[in-house]
Design a protein around this nucleic acid. Structure first.
Lengths: 156, 156
DNA sequence: TATTGTTATACTCTATAACTATA
DNA sequence: TATAGTTATAGAGTATAACAATA
């Protein structure tokens, strides 16, 4: 009984049906698409995903501390330093010393920061609407809920 | 009219409701959870997400070429070299020369590779089942479909 | 002692240009 | 000329240890 010559004739159609059963696989592939589109969307504003989300959080929560922002976005504090440096050097946010606790900074958006944040948010919303155009509202809502449920999973 | 002293009293509860409206934000956070769990799940097998998915694809598509695998997993060809090197050095897969096209290799799983793949797949399935335990079957199916739809989005 | 921000560092993942051998 | 695999390299993103200033 001859063994199949799988090494002579390459598979014409590659099958990923085993991996496709996993949410993690679909999530990685889908996230790659969303992230790639976001990079393009944010390019005109010279923002990356992480500087963008930090800016939005500072606009939405003026006065929050760096450790609070790091905690909220699950970014390690050391990695946040360069991010805030970048936003501050572009005069989009300011670090303001707290008299009552001189260890920490209050993060505040500037007028320019608020403006850029608003523009970026609108561009992001338009981009996502295009990507998700084939999904109906109910599916989209289920998707967002499911993502939130997974996000809140913690090991027992 | 005094301006609010947001810099004196830090926000007690940080609000991310603006970002939470975006699928991309929820996806990043959810993917971080799934990826973190997968790292733990694959640690006993000494596999990473990318070596794991490559191994599964080779087991499922014996004889496929490296360029086909790179294409299927959307990995850049240069980055796949070290991945296959790693799997081959552990005798989980082999690169077999093709007489009819000596430029390319047929990737084939070894018996050990097939065994490890099977064990890893079962551990991954068990792990995902735990993470997604709060989602009913219908929601899970909708989630997988939505992820596939996003994955297949391409710019016009 | 503990906390906040910081520095330094290292490791993974990913992207691109250019080479080689084959076609 | 084009393709498959490779090398070298650089840029993001992320994680940890240790320090200074402050509480």
């Amino acid at each position: 009984m001859p063994k199949p010559d799988t090494n002579k004739t390459p598979p014409q159609q590659i099958d990923d049906s085993t991996l496709r059963q996993f949410v993690g696989y679909g999530m990685k592939r889908a996230f790659n698409v969303l992230h790639g589109e976001l990079v393009e969307t944010l390019k005109p504003f010279d923002l990356r995903m992480v500087t963008y989300s930090a800016l939005v959080m500072i606009v939405e929560n003026p006065g929050l501390r760096q450790y609070q922002l790091a905690d909220a976005l699950e970014i390690e504090r050391p990695n946040l330093v360069a991010i805030i440096d970048e936003l501050e050097s572009r005069a989009l946010v300011v670090r303001e010393r707290i008299p009552t606790d001189r260890r920490s900074y209050a993060l505040l958006p500037t007028a320019a920061g608020k403006q850029l944040c608003d523009k970026a948010l609108r561009a992001d919303a338009a981009s996502e609407a295009r990507i998700l155009a084939t999904l109906d509202e109910k599916t989209k809502a289920t998707l967002i809920e499911a993502l939130a449920a997974i996000r809140s999973f913690r090991k027992t």
